[in-house]
Design a protein around this nucleic acid. Structure first.
Length: 225
DNA sequence: AACAGGCGCAACCGCCTGCTG
DNA sequence: CCAGCAGGCGGTTGCGCCTGT
């Protein structure tokens, strides 16, 4: 398949964004939204490619972006989710409100990776296979309660609508016994429940459910790295 | 004060997948 | 079913800043 050209046209600007460009992009999106990223720069009068605009908006200009250092709690969440999900930064980011995949990826490569590697070296001689297994098990059972899924939407009837996460995890289902067709992807599981943030049992069950979804969605090809 | 090396982060690149005609 | 397009994603790069010498 021929890949669509991107940013190849002469005259398109690259490199750091200026304040002026940021303001143009923000005001355009606030006015008209971003239904078509490719067309957006032209419509907004920006000499950027659509991808660049999208990246800038998602990673920097979005109003709900949380700036600043990662908290200890967030670090732990990232570590745990990375054990569970691998390098699926967008999936990890979707569980950390206000954080972007790029930010998490950078944070991982600059901080956590080194720290964990050092930690692994320290543990290498002492860790047995059994302990390793127990660690993995604990990860699945003790995912931090504060991880918030953006896939939950509470509607007016106090129902929680759940969109299965595998909608976004598209690689691991090739040989799956589950046929994740479009109809399956659109499947919505509704819990008629009193589910609340105080109800940690429900939250725990939820995380176990998620884990099961992850595991089953890949016909065990899902890798914990 | 000047320089070198390391670090952090924004941005780019290229591939993959889903959608549509 | 196929081809082309658009969006999304993860890997990588480049550059500015910081720190040590």
């Amino acid at each position: 398949m021929v890949r669509a050209p991107c940013c190849e046209k002469m005259g398109l600007k690259k490199g750091p964004w200026t304040l002026e460009e940021d303001q143009i992009l923000i005001s355009f999106i606030q006015k008209y939204g971003h239904e078509n990223w490719r067309a957006l720069p032209k419509q907004a009068g920006l000499l950027r490619c659509g991808k660049s605009c999208r990246l800038r908006w998602i990673n920097y200009l979005r109003p709900d972006i949380k700036r600043g250092n990662f908290s200890e709690e967030e670090e732990q969440i990232i570590i745990k989710l990375h054990q569970l999900l691998g390098n699926r930064w967008s999936a990890i980011a979707s569980r950390l409100p206000g954080r972007t995949d790029n930010e998490i990826k950078n944070f991982w490569h600059t901080h956590l990776k080194k720290r964990l590697e050092q930690h692994n070296i320290d543990l290498a001689s002492a860790t047995t296979t059994k302990q390793s297994h127990e660690m993995t098990t604990n990860v699945t059972q003790n995912i931090d309660h504060h991880i918030i899924s953006p896939n939950y939407y509470q509607d007016s009837q106090n129902m929680v609508t759940y969109h299965p996460t595998y909608c976004h995890d598209h690689q691991e289902n090739n040989s799956s016994s589950h046929d994740h067709t479009q109809s399956n992807k659109e499947e919505i599981i509704q819990y008629s429940t009193n589910y609340g943030h105080e109800d940690m049992t429900s939250f725990n069950n939820d995380m176990v459910f998620w884990y099961n979804v992850f595991m089953s969605s890949g016909n065990n090809t899902f890798e914990i790295s």
